[in-house]
């Protein structure tokens, strides 16, 4: 059963991001929103971790949050808008928010 993991905290402020990556199932996905998109800063430690995730794990980021922080999605990261966010919640069987 695949889960969509929803993150909004910066990966540099606490251990949520690292804990989440450690708990991802084979076909789970990440959706980065808010300050969590800072994990996609090229060359940073969280970015390295994202690059090293197994193939089966999809990585999404909310487009408005990328734009607001001047981060260009690269590589395996797929930007989504709000309708896309809704669609992801339908595609995955559970949505787990890291509050």
């Amino acid at each position: 059963m695949a889960t969509l993991h929803l993150l909004s905290h910066s990966p540099f402020g606490d251990s949520r991001f690292a804990s989440c990556l450690a708990l991802l199932g084979r076909n789970d996905a990440l959706l980065l929103t808010g300050d969590a998109v800072h994990a996609l800063r090229a060359g940073s430690t969280p970015w390295e971790s994202v690059q090293q995730l197994p193939e089966g794990i999809a990585v999404f980021a909310l487009d408005e949050d990328l734009a607001a922080r001047g981060i260009a999605p690269s590589g395996r990261v797929q930007p989504v808008n709000y309708p896309g966010f809704v669609e992801l919640c339908c595609r995955y069987e559970k949505v787990n928010s890291w509050l």
Binding site: G34, P83, F85
Partner: peptide
């Protein structure tokens, strides 16, 4: 929703809710 109105997540929840209805859910 768990956060105060001034938290970005409150706005995100509203935009998500609007998109969910707009998508026919």
């Amino acid at each position: 929703l768990f956060s105060a109105p001034h938290a970005p997540s409150s706005r995100r929840a509203l935009r998500f809710a609007e998109a969910a209805l707009a998508s026919g859910h």
